[in-house]
Amino acid sequence: MISIQVNSNNLTCKSTNLATLLVELEYADSIVATALNGEFVAQNNRVNTPIQQGDKVEILAPMQGG
């Protein structure tokens, strides 16, 4: 288990890459975009993007905007 931040919330996870993290956090069926440590990670790159202790992950969804 490693400790990371997701959307500024501290949590521990067993995932080792961004794709499995989304499944572990139950985002698998959601339309979301991701960033790791401030850098955009495209959907098809998530499986190749390792998650490490202390990483900061952003998971964003569609929202109203002006």
Partner: peptide
């Protein structure tokens, strides 16, 4: 339509 992105909990 203008739209945006925001954090959203999985539930």
């Amino acid at each position: 339509a203008t739209v945006s992105l925001r954090r959203e909990a999985s539930d």
